[in-house]
Design a protein around this nucleic acid. Structure first.
Length: 162
DNA sequence: GCCAACGTTGGC
DNA sequence: GCCAACGTTGGC
């Protein structure tokens, strides 16, 4: 039996909206990652992200943006129904249940890092300079991460990978 | 809170 | 299909 290749990702969130502590407080520490309204990010969510993939949880729009923990994907791409709800923050009248435009995955918290890895550190660390999040003007909220980058981030966080 | 970078929209 | 105008993101 051929094992599926595990992939790695980085998900951005503003902690004022949804933080890693909020995820920890969710039932089973699991929550649908809703509200993504960017086509490139949507394509990753719909087509590429699989159950078991690793996710780095990143806090943006704070004085020291940083990777703050790790999650695992527990459900792969399915329609983001918050787009159908006129009262929802990310309502999109152009998306409906017959032709959903936006997708999401479920993520489950694995660990909150005792030591966060800041954006500055990422930019200065050998092997991480090419991370998407370190690039100038990088706004993509769902980003691919290489296995090497995943490992280095965990090393910097003081969390050895089992 | 500013504003550069970037994505999307819509007139033509 | 071009591209100016507009809206949003996110580091600083």
């Amino acid at each position: 039996m051929k094992a599926k290749t595990k992939r790695y990702w980085l998900f951005k969130s503003e902690p004022s909206g949804f933080s890693i502590e909020d995820l920890k407080a969710c039932p089973n520490k699991t929550e649908p990652w809703d509200g993504v309204r960017n086509y490139q990010a949507r394509n990753f969510l719909r087509d590429d992200i699989q159950v078991g993939d690793g996710v780095l949880f990143y806090h943006s729009r704070i004085p020291e943006p940083a990777v703050v923990g790790a999650c695992i994907v527990t459900k792969s791409g399915y329609p983001d129904t918050t787009a159908f709800d006129p009262k929802a923050k990310h309502y999109d009248p152009k998306s409906d249940s017959s032709a959903p435009r936006w997708f999401l995955v479920d993520v489950k918290l694995k660990k909150i890092f005792k030591r966060v890895v800041t954006l500055n550190e990422i930019k200065e660390s050998a092997g991480l300079e090419t991370m998407v999040v370190a690039q100038k003007g990088s706004r993509l909220s769902i980003q691919p991460v290489t296995e090497a980058e995943w490992k280095i981030i965990h090393d910097l966080a003081g969390d050895a990978i089992k």
